[in-house]
Design a protein around this nucleic acid. Sequence first.
DNA 1: CGGCATGTTGAGTCAATTCAACAGCAGTGG
DNA 2: CCACTGCTGTTGAATTGACTCAACATGCCG
Lengths: 231, 231
Amino acid sequence: MHTQTITAPTVNALDIPHVMAAEPADQFSAIVRCSRVVASEFSYNKDEEIYGEGEPSEYLYQIISGAVRTYKLLSDGRRQISAFHLPGDVFGLDPGSEHRLTAEAITNTTVRLVPRRNLEKAAASNVQVTRNLWTITASDLRHAEDHMLLLGRKTAMERVATFLLEMDRRLARAGMMALPMCRRDIGDYLGLTLETVSRALSQLNDEGILMFSSARQIALRNRQRLSTMEA
Amino acid sequence: MHTQTITAPTVNALDIPHVMAAEPADQFSAIVRCSRVVASEFSYNKDEEIYGEGEPSEYLYQIISGAVRTYKLLSDGRRQISAFHLPGDVFGLDPGSEHRLTAEAITNTTVRLVPRRNLEKAAASNVQVTRNLWTITASDLRHAEDHMLLLGRKTAMERVATFLLEMDRRLARAGMMALPMCRRDIGDYLGLTLETVSRALSQLNDEGILMFSSARQIALRNRQRLSTMEA
DNA sequence: CGGCATGTTGAGTCAATTCAACAGCAGTGG
DNA sequence: CCACTGCTGTTGAATTGACTCAACATGCCG
């Protein structure tokens, strides 16, 4: 693993319970709490690889700030991004000993991480830890099922509409979203070319459904209309 | 659930351990054994729905004989099949209370099933049961990740090559496979039309890479060449 | 044997891609 | 401060792989 910055290990599981009690959905915290393992922090630079496909799976990650893409490549370089991970999201849980995807920082990114080894020890005795790990895998599966429908059967415009609604839901603040990823990343997520993505966004802008303040700063002006477009 | 035939509940978990000891990979048996719940048998007719998207998730299924497709629909009828389930496969484990896919019998199909309610009771106390359920979900996720790459980035011929190798691996006997599904099902699995699937298969036949004895009886004649075609 | 499902093949179309040019902007250094 | 450079994004024009529509072939089941 090629980490650039190592901010000293900071968060001890024993400190967390009361702080995090208000966030029942935070599985990572729940796992850390139950398993009583130490979570460290690491930072990665923009475009830096966090782990590669086929590498041993040693850590579970939660994004503190930044954004991460996980993807698979074909031999000739065609790329399919499976998911974008945003602050609060957990990634890197490939059950089995090897990662099945590559993970890269989209922007400078800081993560919390716990060694899998510790998790497994905790999971062996504590059912709740195992259940939480299962829940994370189940969420990934749910997303993948939805995404297969998009990739297999939706038109370009429907894919872009779905993407915008997903990102709006996950990262909009004050009606505005700041996309961390470039047009090529969006294309590789949606199974389209970057030009097709750009054309679809321009059309939505022309139709008044969204508004750009810059290429990556987008405000949705008509979510309902966009919903009908996602098919 | 609209089941046509109810063959009397037969298999009791307590009978299984020794019979199944030779199949370590059979998670269903392991789960049934650990949780000491009763597994029943049911049969479904060709094209009969086993459960629908959005319905409460009440059972976990294992195919004894036959084949099942699980899919999602768009409002205008476009369909994406997520997976084909063949004898020995487990399906229906949508964590959470509702099914996220519809399941239908492709041919007349017999399944073993256990009530989720019983599983959950067993899983609450027995870590091994939870781990096995997690493993099933993880396998589904792995397949979905591979399939997203196919749907987002592979050409029609590459998709068909991948499909043939998958089915050959899973159901070939004596170098021959008997596909249970029609061309439309294959198309809806691969994100293609049935005509495109048919054309690709014909081309592979012309090139001597496969041989038909009937439309659904296929023997691969050159797996290595097919492997290079799946990209 | 007839009728309907399923599968194949051909011809024309089209949505998305490829290739190409240019615009915008951020960072760099003279 | 502004030209220069590289990167990202947009737009246009031509191409193409897969789709649609159509006709026909095959085969299974009653």
